[in-house]
Amino acid sequence: MTVRLTQASAPLMRSIAVRDEFGAEREVAIPAERALTVFVDKRELVTLMTLGAAPELLVLGYLRNQRLVESVAEIDSVTVDWEVEAAAVATRGGVQRFEEKTAKRVVTTGCGQGTVFGDLMADLDAIRLPPASDPRGRISQATLYGLLDAVRRQESTYKSAGSVHGCALFRQDELLMFVEDVGRHNAIDTIAGWMWLHGVDGADKIFYTTGRLTSEMVIKSAQMGVPIVVSRSGITQMGYELARQLGLALFGRATNRHFLCYTGFERFDAQPEPARPATKE
């Protein structure tokens, strides 16, 4: 079944006048953060703070990662109207146990504080990732370097205005999708929505984020079926423990040709750099 979507992307930046340390006035760009209140079958669910790059995909991914809807086939339409700052989701048969699923909320470490409905750890045992012996679930050092170079060359809001997080989906070092938002959780939800809408399998994919690897990011990556996650930032203890439990390969502090492999060494085909010569004192 086809999901009917508006195409209501909003301007990602706006220009403002500022004064620098010399007292000179100049014009700079800043991210255009805005509120988007999500209604599901006319019931208010949550208000997301977002840039609005792909709001329909954000809403789809949010519903998927919150486990409020099991199949994209259950969604009839997502209609975004920026004049009223609202996204109206119409389902085909209603959300089963809506009140029960949304009764418990966990405030996460997401930028501006994210929210997860229900038990954060529920259904982890049902997640199946490709084994490390499967070529789809492996990454070489050369591929990792190629991926980081692709991110470096990507035109972005961050380069123009800063203050945003970016997430990307790769097949090896081929960039499939790149999205930025004010919070890394919004960016990963948008990618999850795109995968869900188009039936994209995560087994042979690599997920990249500029944000830190928290429990929320690890769980969402696993729910997308993606076995390898790369971050420009670091990792939390809970993110580390969950990645080990789920069998993910996590790479952090990854910039240029530097990285740390925190978990999932068995998925990594290392090609170590030559040892640097000792410096003479």
Rank of each mutant, 00 (worst) to 15 (best):
Val3Asn: 06
Leu5Lys: 08
Leu5Gln: 09
Thr6Gly: 04
Gln7Gly: 04
Ala8Ser: 15
Ala8Phe: 11
Ser9Asn: 08
Ala10Gly: 01
Arg14Trp: 01
Ser15Glu: 15
Ala17Lys: 13
Val18Phe: 09
Glu21Ile: 15
Arg26Asn: 12
Glu27Met: 13
Val28Gly: 10
Pro31Ile: 06
Arg34Asp: 03
Ala35Met: 09
Leu36Gln: 10
Leu36Glu: 09
Leu36Trp: 09
Val40Cys: 05
Asp41Glu: 05
Met49Pro: 09
Gly52Ser: 08
Ala53Asp: 14
Ala53Asn: 05
Gln66Phe: 00
Gln66Lys: 01
Val69Lys: 07
Val69Trp: 06
Val69Asp: 11
Val69Pro: 03
Glu70Gly: 05
Ser71Phe: 12
Ala73Ser: 15
Ala73Leu: 07
Ile75Thr: 08
Val78Trp: 05
Val84Asn: 13
Val84Leu: 13
Ala88Asp: 14
Ala90His: 11
Ala90Tyr: 03
Thr91Val: 05
Thr91Asp: 12
Gly93Lys: 09
Glu99Thr: 10
Glu100Gln: 13
Lys101Asn: 02
Thr102Asp: 04
Val106Thr: 09
Thr109Arg: 11
Gly110Phe: 07
Gly112Tyr: 04
Gln113Ala: 12
Thr115Ser: 08
Thr115Pro: 07
Val116Ser: 08
Phe117Ala: 01
Phe117Ile: 03
Phe117Leu: 06
Leu120Gly: 02
Leu124Thr: 09
Leu124Asn: 09
Leu124Ile: 06
Leu124Pro: 02
Asp125Asn: 13
Arg128Tyr: 03
Ser133Thr: 15
Pro135Ser: 10
Gly137Pro: 10
Ile139Met: 07
Ile139Trp: 02
Ser140Tyr: 09
Gln141Lys: 07
Ala142Arg: 11
Thr143Asp: 14
Thr143Pro: 00
Leu144Thr: 08
Tyr145Gln: 12
Gly146Thr: 02
Arg152Pro: 02
Gln154Thr: 10
Gln154Val: 04
Glu155Asp: 11
Thr157Glu: 02
Thr157Val: 11
Ser160Cys: 01
Ala161Trp: 00
Ala161Asn: 01
Ser163Lys: 13
His165Leu: 05
Gly166Ile: 05
Gly166Met: 04
Cys167Lys: 13
Ala168Ser: 05
Ala168His: 02
Leu169Lys: 03
Gln172Phe: 09
Leu175Gly: 00
Leu175Lys: 00
Phe178Tyr: 14
Asp181Gly: 07
Arg184Pro: 10
Asn186Pro: 11
Asn186Gly: 10
Asp189Ile: 14
Trp194Val: 04
Trp194Asp: 10
Met195Lys: 09
Leu197Ser: 11
His198Lys: 11
His198Asp: 14
Gly199Leu: 07
Gly202Glu: 10
Asp204Thr: 14
Lys205Ile: 03
Ile206Tyr: 03
Arg212Val: 13
Glu216Phe: 02
Ile219Asn: 01
Lys220Met: 13
Ala222Gly: 01
Gln223Phe: 03
Gly225Tyr: 11
Val226Thr: 07
Ile228Lys: 00
Thr236Leu: 11
Gln237Thr: 08
Gly239Lys: 04
Tyr240Pro: 00
Tyr240Ser: 12
Tyr240Asn: 14
Glu241Val: 07
Ala243Tyr: 00
Gly247Ser: 12
Ala249Lys: 08
Ala249Tyr: 06
Ala249His: 05
Ala254Asn: 02
Thr255Leu: 12
Phe259Ile: 15
Cys261Trp: 01
Tyr262Pro: 12
Glu266Ile: 04
Phe268Cys: 08
Gln271Leu: 05
Ala275Leu: 10
Thr279Phe: 12
Thr279Val: 15
Lys280Thr: 14
